[in-house]
Simulated assay, not measured.
Amino acid sequence: MNKKVALRGFGIVVEQNRKVGFLSRVLFCCKGIGVFVKQRAKLQFQEVEESANNKQELNEEAAPKVKKFRGVHSSRFLSHKAQMNAYNEAMTRESRKMLRFTGEDSMGNLVVRMETENIGEGYEPNPADPSDPRYISEMNGFEMRFDFETLEPWALYPIEKA
């Protein structure tokens, strides 16, 4: 029973009963490695799935806290010259010995509001019927908003009154 047999591909001559023992150990190790790889992949998938669920739960919790606005102001300057004049008026307030900002908005951003004559036109939300905004043909002011951290302007638009 103890025949010497050559293992194919290994170039080794071993006894047959040792061959069976060796192959069974190799097969056992391969199965063990396969099981380990499958379990590791399953754990990684579960971790990714749990983190995605946690992010979704956090997003769902944060969503009701966001204030929803009923309407959006939509206005435009009548000309590029009027827009450039408004920009220059807002940006040169300090050099003209005036306060740099006239106030801040509800989000804490600094604002410059100034009056001018017929600078733009546009729509304003209608509190009575949000689907039917009010048209304003003559807007007599403008507003420029600045980022509160960098103090860089990020919005300039005409408004009805300053």
Score class of each variant (00 low, 15 high):
residue 140 N to F: 02
residue 10 F to E: 14
residue 132 D to F: 11
residue 18 R to E: 08
residue 85 N to K: 10
residue 22 F to M: 12
residue 131 S to R: 08
residue 155 A to N: 09
residue 149 E to D: 09
residue 3 K to L: 10
residue 9 G to C: 03
residue 122 G to C: 05
residue 137 S to T: 02
residue 116 T to D: 09
residue 92 T to W: 04
residue 35 V to F: 07
residue 11 G to C: 09
residue 116 T to C: 14
residue 8 R to T: 05
residue 6 A to R: 11
residue 157 Y to D: 05
residue 127 P to T: 02
residue 54 N to V: 15
residue 58 L to F: 07
residue 79 S to Q: 13
residue 34 G to K: 05
residue 75 S to T: 15
residue 158 P to N: 07
residue 14 V to G: 01
residue 26 V to N: 02
residue 40 R to V: 01
residue 89 E to Q: 11
residue 130 P to T: 05
residue 75 S to G: 03
residue 73 H to W: 13
residue 149 E to A: 15
residue 60 E to G: 01
residue 46 Q to E: 15
residue 154 W to V: 00
residue 35 V to C: 12
residue 75 S to V: 11
residue 123 Y to R: 07
residue 59 N to C: 06
residue 145 R to P: 01
residue 10 F to G: 11
residue 114 M to R: 06
residue 37 V to C: 02
residue 37 V to S: 00
residue 141 G to T: 02
residue 147 D to P: 01
residue 18 R to A: 03
residue 151 L to S: 05
residue 10 F to V: 10
residue 85 N to Q: 14
residue 38 K to D: 04
residue 39 Q to L: 07
residue 8 R to D: 04
residue 93 R to Q: 05
residue 144 M to W: 00
residue 45 F to W: 11
residue 40 R to L: 05
residue 110 L to S: 13
residue 138 E to I: 03
residue 7 L to D: 04
residue 84 M to D: 15
residue 87 Y to P: 03
residue 11 G to M: 07
residue 99 L to H: 13
residue 55 K to E: 03
residue 20 V to L: 07
residue 54 N to P: 12
residue 122 G to I: 07
residue 37 V to M: 07
residue 76 R to T: 12
residue 119 I to R: 04
residue 24 S to E: 13
residue 149 E to I: 15
residue 79 S to I: 06
residue 31 K to W: 08
residue 65 K to N: 14
residue 142 F to A: 01
residue 54 N to R: 10
